[in-house]
Structure formats: structure tokens, C-alpha cells
Amino acid sequence: MNIVVCVKQVPDTEAPIRIKPDGSGIDEMGLNLVMNYYDEHATEAGLRLKEQFGGTVTLIAAGPERTKEALRTGLAMGADEAMLITGPGLEQSDHLGMARVLAAAIKALPHDLVICGKLSTDDNASIVGPALAELLGLPQATAIAHLEVDASATTALVHREVEGGVEILEVPLPALLTVERSLNEPRYPSLPGIMKAKRKEIKTSTSTDQKVAASSRLTKLVPPPKRQAGRVIEADADKAVAEIVAFLKNDAKVL
């Protein structure tokens, strides 16, 4: 099975971010950049299918040169190959533009499955996956929490969380999947894996996409409004209950 996994490098979500004073974006100085953690789940899904069916897992990313580090994390987890698409226009591109660039590269690769994270934790947009499915002409299943591929590797049975339930969906291969965190537990890149990844070459190509003009652009970034702490009281159960009920009635007006 030929599996392509899309990867993005994002700021570590554990660490705080610094917004540039002019609000044009975030300050990347000293920022710890890592593989988007939904992409770790996507890589894990690819690796498990490879273990089951054989084949290769190819990682692909579009972004600046530093993105190679995120790709190397995936290689250290056990992916076979990695490629990076760079290009001067990528910086100005929006999510659809990014999907177009990735689609052009993936078209040239054999692919039975294309797997993406359900979103990336920087833009939180969750656009690239389904857009990529459209541009590749593939059927899609997004935010999957369970994945089984039948023995002949012709269809995938997936579970998707929907409001109030679970949708069980059959998707013929080739297909594009985006994955939820509960799909699997990604393996850690092992130390021998890190050594092997170090020796692997990451193929780099330059995007020639001319249509990078963005259809939307970020004009300002601000910190979220800070909530003021309210009253904190130490109370026994009866007093606490009286306080909460009064709050629900008078302030929140839900009682």
C-alpha cells in the first residue's frame, strides 16, 4: 500500500506564543517548532497500515526549509521517505493554495491513501485535508476516530464523531482521510530511528504554482480577551449550593 502523509510544522502547543507588537503574526524567535500533533497521529496510522499491508509511507510537507525537522521526526518514527516543497509564494498562500501545491506533488506519487491530521494547531483551519481530497478527485473521510482497511485493501471502514453519535462510513480506496486524536497513540521516534532519520535524504522541490494569490489574508493577531477572576469563596456545601444557585438565577439567568 502506498501511503502519503501530509505534515506541517507548528509551534509547540505546550509553550506560550508571543504575538508581534504590530499584530502581523507571531514572533518565531526562540519558538519551539514541532510536527503538528494531529500529523503524528496521521503518521502513526500510515505506519500501522504499512505494517499490516506492506508498502511505503511517504511524508510530504510544503513550507520553509525548517520544516525538514518535522519531516525528520516522522522519518524517526519509521516513515520511509520524506519530501519538502518550498517556494517563494508559499508564505503568501492561503489554505487552498497550500492544498493546490500539495495536490500537484501528490499526483506525481503513487497513492492508495493520503492521510492528514484533522487540523493543524497553528491556524486551526482544517481546510487543507478536504480541499486536497477535492483537488485529487478522491473520496474523503474527515476526523476519523477508527480505521479498518479490508484484507484486499480496497475499502476503508472508518468511524467519525458527529453530533450526538458515531458515523460508520465505508470509503473506497484510493481515498483521503483526516484523523482525530483518538484514532491511535503515536509511537515515539526511537533513538535508533533518530539515527536512521539523520542519514536519510529529504527530497526538496520548488513549487512553480503561480496562482498563489490568497483569497483571504490575516490582517491582525491579538491575544484573546483576558477574563477577570470573579469571586472565590471557601464554603461548606450548603453555603456553596446557595451561592451557585443564586449565580445561576441572577447572573447567568439559566434557572
Partner: peptide, 28 residues
């Protein structure tokens, strides 16, 4: 959590919750 709560209760939720449920039922 108390830094952003409008109302913060320092207390034992195992005692508070059952009583709160009763009080809410009564109010509703």
C-alpha cells in the same frame, strides 16, 4: 481555574454536587 471563574467555590465537590442537584430540581 479560579483565575477566570466568575464564581469560584473552594470546597468538596462530592458534598456539593448532590445538594446542588437537589436545589436545582427544586428551583426548576
Amino acid at each position: 481555574i479560579f483565575q477566570l471563574a466568575d464564581l469560584g467555590i473552594v470546597g468538596d465537590l462530592f458534598e456539593i454536587l448532590p445538594k446542588l442537584t437537589e436545589a436545582v430540581k427544586k428551583a426548576k
